[in-house]
């Protein structure tokens, strides 16, 4: 499997209290990779590192085969980027912004840009500083897509947008990705949105990537179990226990496990416990349990 983004042993000090340490990440070529994590987990910092905006302290970053940051300009020519907050130049109109942006990309598709301009109902003479949040989001998506990138890096692209604008922006994105078979790294804390569009998931917390797996495995592998009779100390389980806590009513316990398979039910019989129900977790539940488990591990 080839990888559009490949990061190994990455280290970067954000502040004296927060750092990215020994981070490894693989984004398969052609995947829509959902990058989940709570606010302040280091998602935006990691995105800036992989775009060459920040110099890593240690480790290697390869994006579309280019070493970052030394060859970041070559990589950036093949990347469409939507930042978390608009940083477009004040004082320029939409048309002037398009003209300026176009001059940096040899692949710029003017027809596609004009089509998106009409579709997003943006007027060329509008000043960028006077655009609403939704209009700015649309313009950023237009700028990211119009040069036909092979990789899209989207940092909270729909954050703060109303549902109608969000649908428009996501529709343009999905349409482009289907046509161009581009790789997408989409960072968000809107878990349900990621669940709809992503086929890979990476979860970041406290500067660490605590999970990275195909969406299918994530969905199928994380379960909530209704258990009774389990001893406090038991033999090693063939799956990962993310959480174990008593239920509010009765003597049963609620277990959240990862890498679950049907055959694992026999393990409970071996330790003298009974599994009463196996319930699928949705992405949000799985995400929350992953975070809880990772934080508990760090606290230990």
């Amino acid at each position: 499997m080839s990888h559009a983004i490949q990061i190994d042993a990455l280290r970067y000090d954000v502040s004296p209290h927060f750092a990215i340490r020994d981070l490894a990440m693989r984004v398969p070529t052609g995947a829509v990779y959902g990058f989940l994590g709570p606010n302040g987990s280091g998602k935006t910092t990691l995105i800036r590192l992989l775009l060459g905006m920040l110099p890593p302290r240690d480790g290697t970053i390869r994006v579309l085969g280019h070493d970052i940051p030394s060859a970041s300009s070559a990589a950036l020519a093949r990347i469409g980027y939507v930042p978390e907050r608009s940083a477009l130049y004040a004082g320029l109109s939409v048309e002037e912004t398009l003209r300026f942006h176009r001059s940096f990309y040899s692949n710029w598709d003017d027809t596609s840009a004009q089509t998106m301009l009409r579709r997003f109902a943006l007027r060329g003479e509008q000043k960028v500083s006077a655009l609403s949040k939704g209009e700015t989001g649309k313009l950023l998506m237009l700028l990211a897509l119009a040069h036909r990138p092979e990789l899209l890096v989207l940092d909270e692209p729909t954050d703060g947008l109303d549902p109608v604008v969000r649908r428009d922006v996501l529709a343009a994105l999905v349409e482009y990705v289907e046509g161009a078979r581009a790789t997408v790294l989409i960072s968000s804390h809107l878990v349900h949105e990621q669940e709809r569009v992503c086929d890979w998931i990476g979860v970041m917390d406290g500067g660490r990537l605590i999970a990275e797996l195909p969406m299918e495995s994530f969905r199928a592998g994380i379960k909530r179990l209704d258990v009774s009779g389990a001893p406090p100390v038991h033999a090693a389980a063939p799956f990962t226990i993310l959480a174990r806590e008593p239920q509010e009513i009765g003597a049963r316990e609620r277990w959240v496990v990862r890498d679950w398979q049907r055959s694992h039910a026999s393990w409970f019989a071996e330790i003298g416990a009974t599994v009463h129900a196996v319930i699928d977790c949705d992405l949000e539940e799985g995400f929350v349990e992953l975070l809880r488990s990772a934080r508990a591990e760090v606290a230990r």
């Binding site: 775009l51 970041s72 070559a74 950036l76 942006h101 940096f104």
Partner: peptide, 9 residues
Amino acid sequence: VYTLSLPID
């Protein structure tokens, strides 16, 4: 952020 995201060294 915008200036640094442009493909130019």
